[in-house]
Design a protein around this nucleic acid. Structure first.
Length: 105
DNA sequence: CTCTTGACGCCGG
DNA sequence: TCCGGCGCCAAGA
């Protein structure tokens, strides 16, 4: 791949269950939590997704307010409908209070 | 070395 | 809801 940070990010995203999501910030926090000292914030997670997102369920990583990643809303929404991800009524955004994944452990 | 750019986040207006 | 501003930080130019 590219670096350890990239690998850790992809690992986390890979484990997000169908129908659930994580925000960019949450992914960054998880990586940081499991590997103290390994830098990288939400923006770096977004960078990893733009480069290697095609090998993981990238649509399960959304912005903090539940909206899908920029310029990929259409495809993401399709996936949400396909896997039954809870959406906010009348909006093209995930209902974070229900869909936010909390990895056990 | 100094900008500029992002699949971002948060607060305020 | 839609801005604008600031923080963030790696990668390019």
């Amino acid at each position: 791949m590219d670096g350890e940070f990239t690998e850790r990010v992809l690992q986390v995203v890979e484990r997000i269950p169908s129908g659930r999501v994580l925000s960019y910030g949450a992914v960054a926090a998880l990586v940081h939590e499991r590997h103290r000292g390994l830098g990288g914030g939400p923006r770096q997670v977004g960078r990893v997704m733009s480069l290697y997102g095609d090998v993981v369920p990238w649509w399960r990583v959304v912005r903090a307010d539940g909206r899908a990643p920029r310029c990929h809303e259409a495809t993401a929404i399709e996936r949400y409908r396909a896997e039954g991800t809870p959406l906010r009524a009348g909006e093209a955004a995930v209902d974070m209070r229900i869909a936010l994944w909390t990895p056990d452990r």
